[in-house]
Amino acid sequence: MSLSPHTTPSGFRLPSIHAAPPFFTQQPNPATQAVATEQWSRLILSYAKHRNLFTIKVEDAQTTGGDWDEILRNDRINRKLNTSYLAYILEQMERSCRLAFDPPKQSISAVLYWRTPEEWAEVLHEWATSTGQLNTILTFYEIIEPPVPSPLSGVPMSILRRAINLLIKSNRAQLIAVADGEGVRFLNGSTSK
């Protein structure tokens, strides 16, 4: 089989390296492994963005028919990522701030940052502005489960909280206590930091 890009059933274009059997095996040479880890990191994040996936678990490497099958396995070359290698990749991604283990103090399940928390803060504020939500109190649920799908639909609570906290620091949001817990009011505010 030649090393060439491949388009998955979901329309995601896999890089040619995905057709190389060694790509699915942890490499003994540290320099080679660093390059492979970077390639896996970019692949995981771009695929997550393509599929609007926010979480990954070490067990996804072994789950047949799961959300991550298209990239964590390659049936054309009879290869799949094993759980220990995926765990290693996720730990490296956490070190480079590309994900956060959620819940904290474990390394099995993670929330992916295919957008940085700062980028999510901008998306959140732009959404609030474009939908006329400035100076309106919204619950967190209304943001992540809006009646009309938005770029924030389904975003994990941990990402939403980080984005809101960044907006609070730039005077573009404030937390408000509401009957069902917490809410947020978006403000025009300054974007200077």
Rank of each mutant, 00 (worst) to 15 (best):
A31P: 01
P15V: 07
F12A: 02
G11P: 10
S10W: 09
T32R: 11
V35C: 05
R13H: 09
F12L: 07
S16H: 07
R13T: 15
P5C: 07
T37M: 08
Q26H: 09
P30C: 00
A20V: 04
R13Q: 15
A19H: 14
A31E: 03
F23D: 01
P22Y: 12
A31F: 13
T37F: 12
T8V: 06
S10Q: 05
H18C: 09
T25H: 14
P15K: 08
F24W: 15
L3P: 00
S10P: 11
N29Y: 04
H18F: 08
H18R: 14
F12Y: 15
H18E: 01
S2A: 08
L3Q: 06
I17L: 05
A36W: 01
P5A: 08
T7K: 13
P22L: 10
P9L: 08
A20G: 05
F24E: 03
A19K: 09
P9K: 00
P15D: 13
H6N: 05
R13Y: 00
A20L: 13
P21N: 02
H6D: 07
T25G: 00
H18P: 08
S4M: 07
T7S: 06
Q27D: 09
F24Y: 15
A20T: 04
P28S: 13
S2I: 00
P28T: 14
N29F: 04
T25R: 14
A34Y: 00
A34I: 01
H6T: 13
T25K: 14
V35A: 15
A34R: 12
P9V: 11
H18G: 04
L3H: 09
S4A: 14
H6E: 13
F24D: 05
G11E: 14
P21I: 06
A31H: 10
P15G: 03
Q33G: 00
Q33I: 00
S4I: 00
F23W: 11
S16E: 12
P21L: 06
P22R: 11
I17Y: 03
T7Q: 09
E38R: 08
P22E: 11
I17C: 03
H6S: 05
A34W: 03
P28L: 14
G11Q: 10
Q26L: 10
S2H: 08
S16I: 00
Q33E: 15
E38N: 12
F23G: 10
S16A: 15
P30V: 04
T25A: 06
G11F: 12
H18S: 14
S10D: 06
Q27I: 05
Q33V: 01
T37P: 03
S16G: 03
T8P: 01
T32E: 15
F23R: 06
T7H: 00
